[in-house]
Write a protein that binds this DNA or RNA. Structure first.
Lengths: 210, 210
DNA sequence: CGTCAGTTTGAGCGAGCTCAACGTGAGTGG
DNA sequence: CCACTCACGTTGAGCTCGCTCAAACTGACG
């Protein structure tokens, strides 16, 4: 642990809209979010971007660059944020000496793969309402993991970001959030969300999740 | 290389519909496809499955189990197939001794992450026609990688599999394949595909791919 | 106080789904 | 060898969910 700590760089804080890295940048490091949040996105040649992920405190960004040493996404802060930067080459060297570090890092990569495949299922088969319910439950459990409330939280991203991430338009996200509120399952005040009926939300997405 | 070879187990051949592993099975190994092909899928509690991936010769299956030591998908052969099984714990031990093996395995995991994120973009923003064009171009370049023709190939999966993978219905896959054929961009004879106008297919998906 | 990004709401439309029917080919049993 | 079956594939007609377009509202910030 001490040895891992030695290679970590604590960077300056990032403010809203600051980029951690940009698409096609050389890959050097992965980053652990300490506070705040980030989104990753790709720009299609036709202009419009698509959000590929959100990263909350305790989560790791930048694994999209490992394969070909070039970042496939851009990463940008959604609010004031701080991170730990872990230079990848040093992580590799240290992993050769510390079996548990190697094991943990394999697990982290595996978790990213499992997560991405889950989103694949969501995007390929869920209705708009199911996507939004699933998204809110997902954010809830991610906040719970770092000790924050799983029932009341602040969304750091815009409705537009959520829409791009879930393959929906802003309008659909907005309308269905309102609809879930009218049904009494959630309460929405701008970006402040309260999950009032988690079990009913789970029922919407189809039981075997969260 | 010799040392890696020593830990690899060459299993019996698999025939169509044989499972390599099933959802919730304990994770022990990853598998390299030697010949034939596999699909991975999840079963939702509501019954219907969703295909999460196709694996062609030279590709690696099973990384969905690394994180929590349990497979998140099932993997099943689409045709007669053979694989190399690589016990994960031995791969981990050997990776500690061979820096280049560790490095390569990190790259393989990274490539899986990059691939999954690309599918995220496809599912969240492409039209049905773009998805199918993109899928065909993807299969083409994967066959090309192992020395097969990038313009004429056999699809090992059903239209239904493709539909589940791309978030479309069988009917849509069928209709749009026919439409692409009528436009003269591809030729379809059951599962035999020929890509006649690759550049026009690329134009459909939006230029900066393949 | 004006601006502008973000959000909401409504009306209308259309891409892709649903449902239904039929075609086709590989495998199986008589 | 043929008849039968069944999974897979195709095609068409109609419908619906989510998109598009348009307009108005809100709050943060210079």
């Amino acid at each position: 642990m001490q040895q891992l700590d030695d290679i970590v760089e604590r960077n300056r804080p990032y403010k809203k809209a600051d980029h951690l890295y940009r698409q096609h940048d050389e890959f050097r490091s992965i980053f652990a979010v300490r506070s705040g949040s980030f989104k990753t996105y790709v720009l299609s040649s036709s202009g419009s971007g698509r959000v590929t992920g959100f990263y909350l405190p305790g989560e790791i960004i930048g694994m999209d660059g490992i394969a070909d040493r070039t970042h496939a996404n851009s990463a940008v802060a959604l609010e004031h944020a701080s991170i730990c930067e872990i230079p990848f080459s040093q992580l590799e060297s240290l992993s050769l000496k510390l079996p548990s570090l190697q094991h943990n890092f394999f697990s982290i990569l595996g978790a990213e793969i499992t997560k991405d495949q889950k989103i694949h299922t969501i995007l390929s088969s869920y209705s708009a309402e199911q996507r939004i319910a699933s998204f809110l439950l997902g954010v809830s459990s991610r906040y719970a993991r770092v000790g924050l409330s799983p029932t009341r939280f602040h969304l750091p991203m815009t409705r537009g970001d959520i829409g791009e991430y879930l393959g929906l338009t802003v309008e659909t996200v907005s309308k269905l959030s309102t609809a879930l509120q009218k049904k009494g399952l959630i309460s929405v005040d701008n970006r402040e969300i309260a999950l009032l009926e988690k079990n009913e939300l789970r029922a919407i997405v189809g039981a075997d999740e969260f």
